[in-house]
């Protein structure tokens, strides 16, 4: 019915720039896949299951790094989840508006502290504390998976708190009022009305925070010890917590990447680390975002 309208310059420019951004990201993915292809061809699935990484012998197995990454992220979440969600519950359910904003400002500032500063604090303070606290387990140094996990946990706190607060605030005030009107205490209202309705948001917050924990490099790099091929005797053993380890990101951020460029297979293995990290984090982020978008089902 309508004749074809010439698209405006604004539209064309906007669309072009958007496509540039989208294709740059796709290009990034493509480069990772292409550059890591040799190691997939030569190692296949054993890339994930091999417990040894000796580039001089052309052995590329990332199982110990996956283990280190998971342990660090798990410790971080274990520390940050109760504290972050607890803070969010306290701020959104018990504090009057002004005090709540004050807490949020403090948390935003905490979120703004650069990771290298956290790393510095970790090196100078946390590492010594952990070394002293772990004396009964006879650690070699304060650089352990536990140290890295605790440090990342502190870094996750603001993320978790902000996202959880959003989730809790999205439960309508009328629901809380109705529960209070029935004679429930503020605690019962929080536990029985607000938290059950906010759970998608809270779960999403956990997943997003988990994604951040996997990808954090600088702070982990400085305190994790960067010890290759640390595979625990038992997956359930807590002993490796008190030992140095290596994570995907600390390996990738280390000086080895400069050596790797000369050897195609080694280089491919390094890029593959990046690809694995990207896929892991993107999956968690995507899942977290989608779950968070589910609005609480309330009138």
């Amino acid at each position: 019915m309508s004749r074809w309208k010439r698209p405006s310059v604004t539209l064309v420019v906007c669309a072009l720039l958007t496509l540039v951004a989208v294709f740059a990201f796709m290009g990034m993915l493509a480069v990772f896949v292409a550059q890591s292809a040799p190691v997939w061809r030569s190692e296949g699935w054993s890339f994930f299951t091999q417990k040894q990484w000796f580039y001089r012998q052309q052995l590329f197995g990332i199982a110990p790094m996956l283990y280190g990454t998971v342990v660090v992220a798990a410790v971080a979440l274990l520390v940050a989840t109760p504290a972050g969600i607890g803070t969010a519950v306290f701020a959104s359910e018990f504090l009057p508006r002004r005090a709540r904003l004050a807490v949020k400002v403090a948390i935003e500032l905490l979120a703004g502290i650069p990771s290298v500063v956290y790393g510095l604090l970790g090196i100078v303070l946390l590492r010594d504390w952990i070394y002293r606290a772990l004396q009964p387990f006879d650690p070699l140094s304060g650089d352990t998976l536990l140290t890295a996990g605790l440090l990342v946990g502190v870094m996750l706190l603001p993320t978790l708190m902000t996202l959880s607060d959003d989730a809790l605030r999205s439960v309508p005030a009328s629901q809380r009022l109705a529960a209070r009107g029935l004679g429930l205490t503020a605690t019962e209202t929080a536990l029985r009305v607000t938290l059950p309705q906010a759970w998608p948001g809270l779960l999403g917050a956990l997943l997003l925070a988990g994604g951040r924990a996997l990808g954090e490099m600088i702070a982990v790099f400085l305190v994790v010890g960067r010890q290759d091929n640390q595979w625990p005797e038992s997956l359930l053993s807590l002993r490796p917590m008190a030992e140095a380890g290596q994570t995907l990101s600390s390996k990738l951020g280390g000086p080895e990447i400069n050596i790797a460029y000369g050897d195609p297979l080694h280089w491919a293995a390094m890029v593959a680390l990046g690809l694995v990290l990207l896929v892991l984090v993107a999956t968690l982020t995507l899942a977290g975002t989608l779950i968070r978008r589910r609005k609480p089902h309330a009138p």
Partner: peptide, 23 residues
């Protein structure tokens, strides 16, 4: 597009550095 931005937001900064280095 919104989802794309969220995922982009989650990408570890280290990987941006890596891709800048490669390209």
């Amino acid at each position: 597009l919104g989802l794309f931005l969220q995922v982009l937001n989650g990408v570890p900064s280290l990987l941006f550095g890596l891709i800048g280095m490669i390209v």
